[in-house]
């Protein structure tokens, strides 16, 4: 296969991958961010404590997370058809990609938001802030560096999953590597695809790390407080209480 033969294939594949990953990332963030916040807020001691809702949401997220992507894709075919009108092509692939990525991202959001010092939540409450204020002014901005890292991780994972979406005719770089490289022994094309994937993933990782780090450098920690669970009372650090009597 000559370069002029490969070139249109590759640019089409790049476009397809970008399209699938871009849209599914957008949906994953839009769905996973509130879901992750909800997992934290409804937990015991959270601002919206609701044990039942927390358990149910947690279970759904776990099940969705443990489902292998290829199974998810098949299982969701009916649903995909009702939404996109087809089960084939890149639009159709976005549905299982996004649905797989929402709980994935939600768990990452949950972890990131739990890291936020509970004292900050209390501070905003003591100013008269409500739950929405806490989310907007504390939980999201304070965990932003971690949220950006989580997004990077999600994008990289989605690029991996999108290769499998090739099996429903969605195209993309992974699909080319499998169809031409593996099945038709076009080793050159396969290696070029792998190289492009490696470069793209490195670039995304680099950009994500840079963004997270530049935010972090600016902020840093606000005090020597250990990271506490939401809404936990703090003890004085000096253990030796000067004797009163």
């Amino acid at each position: 296969m000559t370069w002029s033969e490969m070139q249109p294939l590759l640019s089409q594949a790049c476009g397809d991958t970008l399209y699938m990953v871009g849209w599914s990332t957008l949906i994953a963030v839009a769905g996973g961010l509130p879901l992750g916040l909800l997992l934290v807020l409804t937990d015991k001691g959270g601002l919206l404590q609701n044990v039942v809702a927390n358990k149910v949401t947690g279970q759904i997220v776990n099940i969705a997370r443990s489902m292998p992507f290829i199974i998810l894709m098949v299982a969701l075919m009916g649903f995909t058809r009702t939404i996109t009108g087809t089960t084939i092509g890149r639009e159709a692939a976005i549905v299982p990609l996004a649905i797989g990525a929402v709980p994935f991202f939600a768990r990452l959001v949950e972890t990131a938001v739990r890291e936020v010092d509970g004292g900050l939540v209390e501070a905003v409450q003591s100013m008269g802030g409500n739950t929405w204020t806490v989310v907007r002014k504390v939980l999201v901005p304070e965990s932003l560096p971690s949220l950006i890292s989580s997004t990077t991780t999600t994008v990289v994972a989605l690029i991996g999953y999108s290769a499998m979406a090739g099996t429903v005719g969605a195209g993309g770089l992974g699909d080319i590597a499998i169809r031409y490289g593996y099945q038709r022994f076009e080793t050159d094309l396969m290696w070029i695809t792998v190289a492009i994937l490696a470069v793209v993933i490195s670039l995304i990782q680099f950009a994500g790390d840079w963004a997270a780090r530049s935010l972090h450098r600016r902020g840093g920690r606000s005090g020597p407080a250990p990271k506490l669970r939401l809404l936990k009372t703090k003890e004085p650090t000096a253990a030796d209480v000067s004797k009163v009597a």
Binding site: G119, G128, K137, G220, G223
Partner: peptide
């Protein structure tokens, strides 16, 4: 009512962002 009561904390609780 809370907004009319100031509170200061041991670990300052300032937003790092």
């Amino acid at each position: 009512a809370r907004s009319r009561i100031g509170m200061v904390f041991q670990h300052f609780n300032l937003l790092s962002s």
